[in-house]
């Protein structure tokens, strides 16, 4: 009994610690006057409206989508076929992918940034391309996990064999049988990658900075000028992430359902 109530209390504290700042930020995004009261004295959409009229924000948002989306698409086109080929035909090399995944996880962004600046600034490669490249590699773990998990529940080799014996070419077998089977897991991995990159700040700020202003950098700037606007940015960000999370959760469930035999 005692133990139970202690756990409850702990949980409550945890929720307050995590949720309160978020709620407060969200409220702040819609707050009119808010000085001496617990809750704001009035509500307004002014901050959101200002934000959407600010071309700098729209452009920053566009840049973020472009950069994250571009990295995800490149990763899908380049990494996914490689993962398929290795898992299906050269399973003994899979441990190298796994090693790469661990390395990606264990490199802190700051160290990576210093390294990238040092190496690439001498060659005249545009820094934004360097960041893009780092992003593509940075999401390897998510893309790998997404693909691998959906391949795990099916005997992919055998599905390809079966399709080929029924008259499909290797390409057709891949497109009509394997891809639809792994699609939900793959798509979930892609969305997850996108949301991680969308929130990335360290690398882009250190390597490129305000020369390529993303939502995160825009947010950083606004923090020092207008708390309300900054809160509105956070609000939009949270809504966007909420939607993505919802879709990912749905897809993950679907991916599990599709292959449970």
């Amino acid at each position: 009994m005692k133990k139970r109530s202690f756990a409850d209390l702990f949980f409550l504290l945890f929720v307050v610690y995590i949720v309160l700042p978020v709620v407060a930020t969200m409220l702040y995004a819609f707050a009119g006057k808010w000085n001496k009261t617990i809750l704001p004295e009035g509500w307004t959409l002014k901050w959101l409206a200002t934000l959407f009229q600010d071309t700098a924000f729209i452009q920053a948002f566009g840049r973020s989508v472009l950069l994250s989306g571009g990295a995800v698409i490149i990763a899908l086109l380049a990494i996914v076929p490689a993962i398929f080929v290795i898992v299906l035909y050269f399973p003994k090399y899979e441990k190298w992918i796994q090693a790469a995944v661990v390395m990606v996880y264990s490199f802190p962004g700051v160290i990576l940034a210093v390294g990238l600046i040092r190496v690439y600034s001498q060659f005249g490669v545009p820094m934004i391309v360097v960041v893009l490249g780092a992003y593509v590699i940075g999401i390897l773990p998510y893309i790998y996990q997404g693909t691998r998990n959906s391949l795990r529940n099916v005997d992919a080799r055998q599905l390809l064999d079966a399709a080929q014996l029924l008259g499909a070419s290797k390409m057709q077998a891949f497109r009509k049988v394997l891809l639809p089977t792994v699609y939900p897991g793959l798509f979930a991995g892609a969305l997850l990658s996108f949301s991680v990159l969308f929130g990335e700040f360290v690398l882009i700020n250190l390597v490129v900075g305000s020369r390529f202003e993303t939502v995160q950098i825009y947010l950083m700037k606004k923090l020092s000028t207008s708390g309300h606007i900054a809160s509105a940015v956070v609000f939009i960000y949270i809504v966007l992430m909420g939607i993505l999370t919802f879709i990912i959760a749905k897809l993950t469930k679907q991916a599990k359902g599709a292959t449970n035999v």
């Binding site: 099916v154 005997d155 055998q158 599905l159 064999d161 079966a162 399709a163 080929q164 014996l165 029924l166 008259g167 499909a168 070419s169 009509k176 049988v177 639809p180 089977t181 599709a258 292959t259 035999v261």
Partner: peptide, 27 residues
């Protein structure tokens, strides 16, 4: 394989999970 006109039934069946029975048979 696809030119040989040889059919095969696998031990684990290897049915296409994304297709219905009808679609599997029609493949």
């Amino acid at each position: 394989p696809k030119e040989r006109q040889v059919g095969m039934v696998f031990q684990s069946y290897a049915l296409f999970p994304n297709m219905t029975v009808k679609e599997n048979v029609a493949f």
